[in-house]
């Protein structure tokens, strides 16, 4: 991906840029809002990582300017603060995602990829209505039903929501933090591995008839449903 990183702390910007480059992305660093807006005018980026607290023009102001000028590129907002009110503010200003510093590069990459994929995604995916089909897995979140092939799966509410989220993003890695946010709806991260435990339970039910494992574990990052 071609990424723009807007961050005023040189050291952190350099480290994060290096980490992202190590993951095979092109990264342009802008230290402030004006430079960032000029860079976006000049070059088509796939996504931007925007620090919330910047000198002169703060992250939300840059974001508003960007959205007003019709730029729709995915933006992940980066903040040293973790207050829910500020998160809501960031999302309302037009951010697509909001993470608290320091997010590991792999986590950031996963979120950016999910966003970019989401933009390209057209509603031609398998299934009709709210039903999602991925490989031999079918999930209907509104009817609280799921099947593996012809076999109905006996899932509890949380497992069903987890499978639906994985299916909606099939082929994209979802990190634990993303799953906690989207499936559990929590604005905090428990210290215990509730995601891993839930994934294990889901896997057991998906593979009960000796089928292969449809969920890929990406070490240190998260989980992905094979598409």
């Amino acid at each position: 991906m071609n990424l723009l990183l807007v961050e005023d702390d040189d050291g952190y910007a350099a480290t994060l840029a290096e980490e992202l480059r190590a993951l095979d992305h092109a990264v342009t660093v802008a230290p402030d809002g004006m430079t960032a807006l000029q860079a976006i005018d000049r070059e088509p980026f796939d996504a931007a990582i925007l620090d919330r607290m910047l000198p002169h023009m703060d992250g939300t102001a840059i974001l508003r300017r960007l959205r007003e000028s019709g730029k729709t590129l995915p933006v992940v907002m980066l903040s040293a603060l973790g207050r829910s009110a500020e998160k809501v503010e960031g999302l309302e200003a037009g951010a697509d995602d909001y993470v608290v510093k320091p997010t590991p590069a792999a986590e950031l990459e996963a979120r950016l990829k999910a966003l970019v994929r989401g933009r390209q995604w057209t509603s031609t995916g398998g299934g009709s209505g709210d039903t999602i089909c991925v490989g031999d897995i079918t999930v209907s979140p509104t009817r609280f039903r799921a099947w593996r092939g012809e076999r109905p799966l006996d899932l509890v509410k949380l497992e069903l929501q987890l499978l639906a989220e994985l299916a909606r993003n099939a082929g994209t890695v979802l990190t634990r933090a993303m799953l906690i946010e989207r499936v559990w709806g929590y604005d905090f991260e428990p210290t215990t591995n509730i995601v891993d435990v839930q994934i294990r339970a889901l896997r057991r039910k998906l593979m009960a008839d000796g089928e292969d494992d449809p969920i890929v574990t990406v070490r240190g990052v998260g989980y992905m449903l094979r598409d």
Partner: peptide, 12 residues
């Protein structure tokens, strides 16, 4: 921010 920097450096 410096902690984030430190963590990033360690990861690299």
């Amino acid at each position: 921010t410096p902690l984030a920097r430190l963590r990033g450096r360690l990861a690299l």
